[in-house]
Simulated scan of single mutants.
Amino acid sequence: MPRRPRLAAAAGAAVALTVLAAGPASAGDPTVTDPRVVARFDFAAGQTPENIALEPDGSADVTFAFSRQVARVTKRGDTTILATLPEVPGAQTPVGGAVVLGIARAHDGTLYVTYVTGKKETGIWRVRPGGAPEQIGFFPADAFPNGLALDEECGTLYTADTRLGRVWSLPVTGGEPTAWATGAALEPTAEIPFGANGLKVHQGAVWVSNTAHGTLLRIPVREDRTAGPVETRATGLNFIDDFAFTGHGDTVLAALIMDDKVELVRPDGTHRTVLTGADGLDDPTSVAVRAKTVYVNSAAFFTTVDPDPNLLLARISKNKL
């Protein structure tokens, strides 16, 4: 498919520009062990898992980017398609056709996903349990809403715009988004047209990864819900995609899509590799953590021989945090 070479060309042009700020293992680090692939997906059918949200029973709700689907995968690997976003004739995006990217889950089971089409369907869509997808957020046609998080306490959805380099906010009731945070730290570069990417709400702040800059950013949420100044918390994260926190602290597991790695990023910004392609990663896109289990999606976007999109589970020990 033409869209994957276009992704690879943009990414490969600047791999050498990022310097890896890795650090050795620390006695206080969580340990990640027992990696195993529990589900494999159909690359030819566009089942390239991009993002992940977790169900109370430990099942993973994942977005299949190029098949425009939302699926539920049990911890045993059984996969059920929950919804398919509508086909958009003539859809054109920086990665080719229409793609479903970020996902967030409300406590009542409602799912929210970002859909990028290059047309009026671009935005945030809601999928209620057993219901059909419904567009609730109406974004500019040239937007690229990617990572998505829900702050249920204040009824707000946040999404990182990879193309326009900003964070949007949207009430869960829907409408047009607000550019909540902007600035050079969120933007792409001339060499790599993929800026703000993954996004999480954590401990009074919105955290964002920037793929082009290889950075992990923290944006405080002020009392009036506006954005505080952008803080750079880690650098040297080569082609970082999405990420997840290991617990209540600021330790992060980050997917490095081009390097087939998951990095453990410490609160001081140093980091080390905890999972690699040898464990089953194939262009990892996103991470989730629940109790003692780590979930990692691999989309195989850049793999030219025997692509292996999959869901990997591993065990995390956090007793030393």
Rank of each mutant, 00 (worst) to 15 (best):
Y112M: 03
G23K: 02
A205L: 04
V221A: 12
T215A: 14
G102I: 13
T63W: 01
A60K: 01
D260R: 15
I136T: 01
A83K: 01
G28R: 11
G269N: 09
N310K: 09
G175I: 01
I257R: 15
T273G: 08
P220I: 08
P2D: 14
G28N: 09
T33A: 15
V100T: 15
D29P: 05
P89R: 04
T178A: 12
P188D: 06
W168G: 14
A106G: 13
L170W: 05
G165S: 08
A179E: 14
R6F: 13
V265I: 11
A16N: 10
L253H: 11
R40Y: 03
A244C: 05
G131N: 09
V62Y: 10
K200T: 09
V206L: 02
D78V: 15
L54I: 00
A300K: 15
V19I: 05
F43C: 01
R40L: 07
T251Y: 07
K200V: 10
A234E: 12
I316Y: 05
I124W: 00
L321I: 14
L199W: 08
R36K: 15
A291S: 14
A22L: 14
T232R: 07
A227M: 15
E231S: 05
N210P: 08
D42E: 07
A181V: 15
T159D: 12
G280C: 12
A141C: 04
R218H: 06
N297Y: 05
L264Q: 09
E263C: 05
L7T: 08
G77K: 05
N310D: 00
T117C: 03
A60I: 00
P267Y: 01
S59L: 06
R68K: 05
P35Q: 07
V172W: 03
T211A: 08
A141K: 15
A83P: 13
T117R: 01
V305D: 10
T33Y: 00
T74L: 04
V99M: 11
D250E: 14
G28F: 00
G236Y: 09
R76K: 09
E153D: 14
N51C: 01
P229I: 06
